[in-house]
């Protein structure tokens, strides 16, 4: 198992180096002078320019620059925001919990609904239930989620007035972040109503972000279940006199989950792409909105650092999914 893990980790190294080259090249591909872009200063003295040039090392050959860039990265230096003058990594770490909280609740929602729905559709294949569910899944899969979010806002915030339009918690509440997860922090704060406020802020973004993964997981679960239900070992399980609940929910599902886990892993990229849109719509203070804002503010140091950090997260999650895949598939484990 450890060897499996390490070999997968080793495979990531060239990809990570490649990703770092992309991030490194980004600032140099932008039209305009990289020093101006990085320093964000309009009009500067020749002296200041020279100073910055040697600070950023732009006067040195490219590979030396890359080497410095890499050493900085390995020491946790992902650059400094032009706008806030704070280290990019620090900004990232303050904002990331918000994205993580949103993404986790979205993927949990997607799995909690998508898997059972896919199983039921497969068991009752061809029925009106199956057709409805799969029709809905295709609609979800085709959904422009930025529009979906706006629609939900119109309905639940505008017409019904049930949910707030933006943010993570009502301005009435203030408490220092402990875990960074608003749901947990609001509970810890002990302020009455804080948790409820956090939940009501979280609901709509979660639904929006979960829509596409939910559709994909439901479709994938159904087709995996259809395949598995025809297998000999399912017949064996039935021949033992086991109730359908156990035959389907344990013997068939356990095998069907193997491809589904891969699908769930692939949703990480989808989630982060969706987070860009969802966070923008709901003014959710996470890294997706951070990236979009930085692109607009031309805070290229943040874009560069964020690009790298987000790619790193995706790679790490994929590694975890690979390991999970090994755990649930005995044929790989041994």
């Amino acid at each position: 198992m450890l060897r499996f893990f390490l070999s997968r980790l080793a495979l990531l190294i060239p990809t990570f180096i490649g990703v770092s080259i992309v991030a490194f090249a980004f600032i140099r591909l932008l039209p305009g002078d990289p020093i101006m872009l990085l320093a964000g200063e309009r009009g500067m003295s020749e002296e200041r320019y020279q100073q910055l040039q040697s600070l950023y090392g732009f006067d040195q050959p490219l590979f030396v620059q890359y080497f410095h860039y890499m050493t900085d990265l390995l020491q946790g230096d992902f650059g400094t925001s032009i706008v806030t003058k704070r280290p990019v990594l620090q900004e990232f770490l303050t904002l990331f919990p918000a994205t993580l909280e949103l993404s986790l609740s979205a993927i949990i929602l997607a799995i909690a609904i998508g898997v059972p729905v896919g199983v039921i559709a497969a068991v009752k294949r061809g029925s009106w239930l199956d057709q409805t569910v799969m029709g809905a899944a295709l609609v979800g899969y085709s959904m422009p989620i930025f529009w979906w979010g706006l629609l939900l806002i119109i309905l639940f915030s505008g017409i019904l007035g049930w949910t707030p339009v933006s943010g993570r918690i009502s301005l009435l509440y203030f408490f220092p972040p402990v875990t960074g997860f608003m749901l947990i922090d609001s509970l810890l704060s002990g302020q009455p109503g804080a948790f409820k406020s956090a939940v009501s802020h979280l609901i709509l973004p979660t639904i929006v972000l979960a829509t596409i993964p939910l559709a994909v997981i439901a479709r994938q679960t159904r087709s995996a279940m259809l395949e598995v239900l025809g297998e000999d070992y399912v017949r064996t399980a039935r021949s033992k006199g086991l109730p359908p609940r156990r035959v389907i929910g344990l013997h068939a599902l356990r095998n069907a989950l193997i491809p589904v886990v891969t699908t769930i892993g692939l949703q990480v990229g989808v989630l982060l792409a969706g987070a860009i849109l969802t966070e923008t719509i709901f003014s959710w203070p996470g890294i997706g909105k951070w990236m979009v804002d930085s692109v607009f503010k031309r805070d290229y140091a943040v874009v560069q650092g964020g690009l790298l950090l987000i790619a790193a997260i995706i790679m790490i999650v994929n590694l975890i999914v690979d390991v999970l895949y090994g755990l649930i598939n005995p044929r790989i484990r041994h």
């Binding site: 490649g18 980004f26 987000i310 790619a311």
Partner: peptide
């Protein structure tokens, strides 16, 4: 294939967004 892996390591929308930032 390494290069393709690198492209796929980014969320597609984010990469497109950044590319557009470069290209205008």
């Amino acid at each position: 294939m390494r290069v393709m892996d690198i492209i796929l390591a980014f969320p597609s929308l984010l990469l497109a967004l950044v590319l557009v930032a470069i290209l205008g």
